[in-house]
């Protein structure tokens, strides 16, 4: 299959506009192949964020990237617009620390992240502090799950001063922590609350009336993930079908543009929205309750089925 001019341009702009791009099978959170998973694991240790492209999205993409880089296997890593290599090469560059240089990370010791602790959180830490004098640790794993605990310091950990207690973090956690803030809330669902600007984007739920308002202000593009058999029964006038034309429109949008998906009840569109995050879109909404909620709350002229 020959690489089309438009796909070549799309690939070129992907690797030019993003410092680090990994073409892989599956997504960063759910790799579908062992080689892709190994490279994700290496990059996760070194970088708070990077772009990934799931080549399983289409056969054109899977074959196209091989032709683009003249390399027959997936995954493929690009840094600063240059093809770096596949899994073998990334592993060997990581072992020799050359990868750290290419990525411009300092390797073993990351810069000390800036972390804010609210007064309420500082008080809560003080109340919980271990009398034996153990340190307060914060671990952030690659999925951005947080673990706050008291314990003895571990080898390789770095000391992070805050406006509250000093935190101890391993290097990978520290790379994911710059700009993080910790608060403490009381009452139902209370506890420590962590906000972290490095967290990868998540699918946001939007209610039908809010979506309608955004559509009317021209702030969001809505896509209907249902097959034509269902669209024939009922559809939202402003929604684009995800056919070839709709997909072309979607992937022509800026990765920061607001995009919403809907289906019948909001389950299939949630899947599609999660996949879109894997493609690098950062502002993705799912219509809560699907077209059924739209009919119920916004436009009763849309038939329910």
């Amino acid at each position: 299959m020959a690489l089309s001019e438009s796909l070549r341009n799309e690939l070129q702009s992907l690797v030019t506009n993003n410092r680090v791009v990994l073409f892989m099978k599956g997504t960063r959170g759910a790799p579908q192949c062992g080689f892709s998973a190994q490279v994700v694991q290496i990059l996760d240790e070194l970088l708070p964020s990077y772009e990934t492209v799931d080549v399983l999205r289409s056969p054109e993409l899977r074959d196209g990237i091989k032709e683009f880089s003249e390399w027959p296997t997936i995954p493929q890593l690009f840094i600063d617009g240059q093809f770096v290599g596949g899994c073998d090469i990334v592993r060997s560059l990581n072992a020799s620390k050359e990868l750290h240089q290419l990525l411009g990370t300092s390797g073993s010791v990351p810069p000390t992240p800036k972390v804010k602790v609210s007064a309420a959180a500082a008080n809560a830490f003080q109340a919980a502090a271990d009398p034996s004098g153990d340190q307060l640790h914060l671990k952030i794993d690659a999925q951005f799950q947080y673990d706050l605990f008291f314990g003895p310091s571990e080898a390789g950990e770095i000391e992070v001063p805050t406006n509250g207690p000093t935190l101890w973090m391993d290097p990978a956690s520290a790379r994911r922590a710059d700009g993080l803030s910790i608060d403490f809330v009381t009452g139902d669902g209370g506890g420590f609350k962590i906000e972290n600007p490095n967290e990868p984007p998540k699918v946001k739920q939007i209610a039908a009336p809010e979506l309608k308002a955004m559509l009317e202000r021209g702030e969001i593009t809505l896509f209907d993930v249902r097959p034509s058999s269902e669209r024939d029964i009922a559809s939202i006038a402003a929604a684009h079908a995800l056919d070839a034309q709709g997909q072309a429109l979607l992937f022509s949008l800026d990765r920061g543009a607001a995009v919403a998906f809907h289906c019948h009840h909001g389950v299939r569109s949630q899947d599609a929205a999660s996949q879109l995050i894997g493609e690098g879109f950062r502002n993705v909404y799912n219509l809560k309750g699907g077209i059924d909620a739209w009919s119920n709350l916004v436009d009763p002229s849309v038939p329910r089925y």
């Binding site: 027959p72 296997t73 290599g85 596949g86 073998d88 090469i89």
Partner: peptide
């Protein structure tokens, strides 16, 4: 390593 592997891969690309 990249150039060396490329040489080999180009020889076997038709099998992949």
């Amino acid at each position: 390593m990249l150039e060396s592997q490329r040489l080999v891969y180009s020889a076997i690309a038709h099998l992949m």
